[in-house]
């Protein structure tokens, strides 16, 4: 049992990190009032870019960085459509999914199925790594895990303790009022989408560079969509996103391990658990009164000054 727990907890951060990064990125977009459904596509494109960089012989750090930049690059059409032309956000986001998936498959053809040396765990003395329960959880992780947790804290500080964060949230709630108060709505939305794209790009790159250490098409496998649910789950709070990502990542890490134990639990039921968790959590949240205001009031709508 202790071995099982040690191994499960040890694999949990690897599942948590991409979900956390993606939901943080999404959280920035949504706090600024922009619903970005393109996560799945952006992650796919970044995963491909990270793998190509690593295969070209650059280190994992460079692969992560370029993956993040690729997230930015592939999001540009979406950003222009949504911010400059105020296009409807839902179809624009879905188009971004298609662009990301398609571009990654087209550009990644020659990189597919080629293993590379990706991000490795931070080396700690062996006696630490061998500790029961917490050994692998704490001392067999790569630096991106720590960075993602730090980013969640920085995001909280940025959104809730700085003037820029206040303006960003104000835009998401009521862009007309923010505008009247002299905030440049488009500029802030642009900034939020850029930060978001970088974080989502990091999440995608993490999947290939740290996770599988190989790139293949379709490897994001729905994790982008899960992160969309995670943001709601987290009630648009970065620190809560950590708990959400731990919960979802934990469930994702648990399933294969339970199966490998030979546990007589139906596979299909296990695969449902993350989604059951979502619904359960959302139910709990909606039952408590005070969270009803969590969703940015202007989420998903285009703001044009002359309409106000």
């Amino acid at each position: 049992m202790i071995e099982f727990l040690t191994a499960w907890l040890g694999s949990l951060p690897g599942f948590m990190t991409p979900l956390l990064l993606a939901s943080l990125g999404l959280l920035f977009c949504e706090r600024a009032g922009v619903l970005n459904l393109g996560v799945e596509g952006v992650m796919a494109f970044s995963a491909m870019t990270g793998a190509i960089t690593a295969l070209a012989g650059y280190g994992p750090g460079a692969a992560m960085a370029l993956g993040a930049l690729a997230g930015l690059a592939v999001s540009i059409p979406f950003v222009i459509a949504v911010i400059v032309f105020r296009a409807p956000q839902i179809p624009a986001g879905l188009a971004l999914v298609a662009i990301g998936l398609g571009a990654s498959e087209a550009m990644g053809r020659d990189a597919a199925h080629k293993p590379f040396l990706g991000l490795q765990p931070i080396p700690w003395p062996e006696w630490l790594t061998d500790l029961p329960i917490i050994g692998r959880l704490l001392f067999e992780q790569d630096w991106m895990v720590i960075l993602s947790l730090l980013l969640a804290i920085v995001a909280t500080w940025g959104l809730f303790r700085t003037r820029h964060g206040l303006r960003l949230r104000a835009i998401g709630e009521d862009p007309a009022t923010a505008d009247a108060a002299g905030v440049d709505v488009q500029l802030y939305q642009f900034g939020a989408l850029m930060i978001g794209a970088l974080l989502i790009g990091l999440a995608g790159a993490y999947l290939s560079v740290a996770g599988s250490q190989i790139w293949t098409e379709g490897m994001v496998a729905g994790r982008g969509w899960i992160s969309l649910a995670l943001v709601v789950f987290a009630q648009w709070m970065p620190v809560r996103a950590i708990f959400g990502a731990v919960l979802f990542g934990g469930a994702e890490a648990l399933i294969p391990r339970l199966q490998a134990q030979g546990l007589e639990v139906p596979v299909y039921f296990l695969s449902m658990t993350p989604y059951l968790l979502t619904i359960g959590a959302l139910l709990l949240i909606s039952l408590s009164m005070r969270t009803s205001q969590a969703e940015p009031g202007f989420l998903g709508r285009a703001y044009t000054r002359q309409d106000r």
Binding site: F15, S212, I214, P256
Partner: peptide, 15 residues
């Protein structure tokens, strides 16, 4: 097709 999951299953088996 889910390389991340397949790798994790393999790890779990090895454990």
């Amino acid at each position: 097709w889910d390389p991340v999951k397949e790798g994790e299953v393999a790890e779990a088996m090895l454990d």
